[in-house]
Nucleic acid binder design. Structure first.
Lengths: 338, 338
DNA sequence: TTGTAAGCGTTATCAC
DNA sequence: GTGATAACGCTTACAA
């Protein structure tokens, strides 16, 4: 069960290891006859070039770290992350890269872990999936000139390689469309305050309202985490106190919680209150009434992010860019536009 | 921005590379004074031992491949996989292993990819997350003596290292409890026929019924895939034709679809029909009526699987074992036991 | 307690 | 077209 190496193949084929190496990389200056011979022997002996040795001399691993930037358990509970992984994995496989999952229980460890994977040379670059962004990590990455692409946005660092949707505009556009549909009493079930997208979406909502001389009472904005009970509580506060005719939830999960709370309180949906979510998680198709939502093309964002990173790795003159993916409002049952 | 190597550190510290290496591994026969000196220099120079070079000489990568054994998109749509990843990632991080995600669009590629990661020496072992099991992969792994642990069960290969819950017993026990509660007209919304657990759970259901001289008409068993529409259709067939008083869904997602279909057909839940799922996905807490379910401790299964694999890797005399994790019935609103 | 040297499995440079 | 040889960054006998 010993591993067969390039030397074994070389000996068997009666050529030098360099020749075998050239055959592996399909070098043009090797005769077809030797190529054929060597290849058949490789197959015969069950030879596979050792990726580690290769990485060592090439100083490239062809693997990319995926950093989730929040406690793993919570990260993975949200279908959002499945989408990103899906997009990333697909492209990685196609381009012959491996993806290395970096996990930790808290932000500091995560940050250390991710950086370490780069420092010890286990990965060539990083895809950061950032909701609550660790700007220290980004700072370190920039200082060390490590290749990375951010999915999301950093408060502190502008014009870094990243892929995002325009949360501000998505929210702004949504509110305009709602106003045009006759909605007046707005309320917001926002996600966690620390998430960058929470602030962006909120600003979009507020600015759009202002532009139409509408205001929103801060009491009608509730921040909540992603647990059902917390979301339910927050939704209850808003709905029982203010009787709004529209509720914007910054995530479908929150939207689902709001729908149930509204129903419990006797609201008819969408007649008395319209509820709209964000993301368009696949799982919400299982939920009734089906959620009207702002679709974030998360799989596509994952694909774009890793494609950009790979391009940066393979063309050092390319420094990445900022890619903003557009969103789309999907009308279902929980809120009707007129 | 050049990488600092062990030689640089050695030179700076006025010792040999081997000494530095020994300091890294905290060898007992290095004087504390040199240890201190070398360590401070390592820190000062920002030295991190290169993982690739290390892997090459040690012939160990400290990374483990995770194979999902089904098209990535479908795999990730199901919260089941998030749970496994969560369990695996936590233990990996703790034991200082990396986890390498292996993805592909279809079974054959997946199988090739996974095997390749081992052959090229990029991973030390594999965790197979098997629903529809690729017995060929297992065969290859066994033949090549590659370390792996299966989460699930193989039809063909008995007594291989694996972690599973006893799907047969879980279903059997559930049915007994249902019978004791007075349920009589059973129906089953099963998952995809090809999945091993589908067959196991079904057998458990049928055997338990038989043991109580009850039978189930094959027409009352519907196989379906995990899309909402397909599940809904199957549920509709059962519910509209047979009017059962209990429906067992082999996944919470299917259970949710069944609940909605039942409601649409005017069934009152749980009075007229009890509906029970499997898995206890975290997301079902967002769903009303909350689903009574058979909880599969999937995070724990992930943890156990990778722990076993790591043990196999670090103690070659340990060949793995079969670990069966017990399940638990969780009563919520969609079905009441009496 | 430390240093020397060989070797892990490749690729790359330079000959021929 | 092909072969020696050095190098990638580390660990590990073997010496000292």
């Amino acid at each position: 069960m010993k591993k067969v190496t390039i030397k074994d193949v070389a000996k068997e084929a009666g050529v030098s290891p360099s020749t075998v190496s050239r055959v592996i990389s399909d070098s043009p200056n090797i005769s077809n006859s030797t190529k054929d011979k060597v290849r058949s022997i490789m197959k015969e002996m069950g030879y596979y070039p050792n990726a580690i040795a290769r990485s060592l001399v090439k100083q490239k691993t062809r693997s990319i770290g995926l950093v989730m930037s929040r406690p793993t358990d919570r990260a993975l509970a949200n279908p959002f992350f499945s989408g990103v992984i899906q997009g990333i994995a697909a492209v990685a496989q196609e381009k012959n890269y491996s993806i290395l999952l970096t996990a930790a229980d808290n932000y500091e460890d995560e940050y250390e872990e991710a950086l370490k994977q780069l420092k010890v040379g286990r990965v060539d670059g990083l895809v950061l999936l950032a909701s609550r962004i660790n700007d220290d990590l980004i700072k370190q990455l920039l200082e060390n000139n490590y290749p990375f692409v951010l999915i999301g946005r950093s408060e502190e660092f502008r014009s870094i390689p990243r892929v995002d949707n325009d949360n501000y505009m998505a929210a702004y556009t949504l509110v305009e469309k709602l106003i045009r549909s006759g909605y007046k009493d707005f309320s917001v079930l926002a996600g966690h305050k620390d998430y960058v997208f929470t602030g962006d979406r909120l600003k979009g909502v507020i600015d759009a309202l202002k532009a139409h001389n509408l205001n929103i009472n801060p009491d009608r904005i509730e921040f909540t985490d992603f647990s059902f009970t917390s979301a339910e509580e927050s939704a209850y506060k808003i709905l029982s106190n203010f009787n709004p005719d529209v509720l914007i939830a910054f995530d479908d999960l929150l939207g689902m919680a709001a729908v149930q709370t509204a129903e419990k309180l006797g609201f008819s949906i969408p007649e008395q209150i319209g509820i709209v979510g964000f993301n368009d998680h696949t799982l919400i198709s299982y939920f009734k009434p089906s959620l009207t939502t702002v679709k974030i093309p998360i799989v596509e964002m994952g694909q774009k992010a890793i494609s950009m990173l790979i391009k940066m790795l393979e063309d050092t003159s390319y420094k990445g860019e900022e890619k903003i993916i557009s969103t789309e409002i999907i009308e279902r049952e929980s809120l009707k536009f007129k």
